[in-house]
Design a protein around this nucleic acid. Sequence first.
DNA 1: GGCTATTTTCACTGTATAGTAATGTAGTGT
DNA 2: ACACTACATTACTATACAGTGAAAATAGCC
Lengths: 109, 109
Amino acid sequence: MPRTFSDEALELLAARFKALAEPMRLKLLNALRDGEKTVTELVEETGAGQANVSKHLGLLYRHRLVARRKEGLKVYYRIADPSIFELCELVCDSLEAELDARRAALSRR
Amino acid sequence: MPRTFSDEALELLAARFKALAEPMRLKLLNALRDGEKTVTELVEETGAGQANVSKHLGLLYRHRLVARRKEGLKVYYRIADPSIFELCELVCDSLEAELDARRAALSRR
DNA sequence: GGCTATTTTCACTGTATAGTAATGTAGTGT
DNA sequence: ACACTACATTACTATACAGTGAAAATAGCC
């Protein structure tokens, strides 16, 4: 039984997808899979600029996708919504199926 | 056991999320839940401009999220990847949980 | 108070894209 | 051939935002 989506619901849905629609943000989320990390650690791990990482983390935080904890000078970020990874798995499955289909379409001609 | 995501995988993932990160496109996909429809029908149902609908459908088509079938003058679009709706359900659940949390946070102070 | 380390914010540039109007294209009927 | 319909494409404007470097905030140390 499909849920019915109001216009506002669609806006919220789109906003969340938009928050996930950036490779850098996915990279950050992925880096947080094995536990909380500081901004500096994330900068090192991703190779991105520090201001850039901070901005992306801020956005993820506003979307409640990550949470943060301040300890002295450092700020530790962590995943706040583990359902993200289910999402990614689902999409990956679908992407693989799509690639398989394209491959099959190629070899068929 | 978490899947490991390469940089390319993250790009592909982000690209798919981006395709879903537009309320109008979600509206179109939602409108296609109950079966295939023509562009004109979708224009009427969404209230958007024809060129706009056509462009969005083209993008969804390139992403293999919808398929199309030409019959005379009309083009019938349909959902090509039903996993989209699982995605939306997942995100909606998460959004509801988030809203509940915010509500609770408000009443607590 | 200064001094350093960590993170955020600001100002800017470039790029991508949503929406729209006009034009193009293909099929249908006369 | 002409006109009409359905859809796609083009050209344009406006807006959003990623990335970057510099300045500003924040917190600990001497």
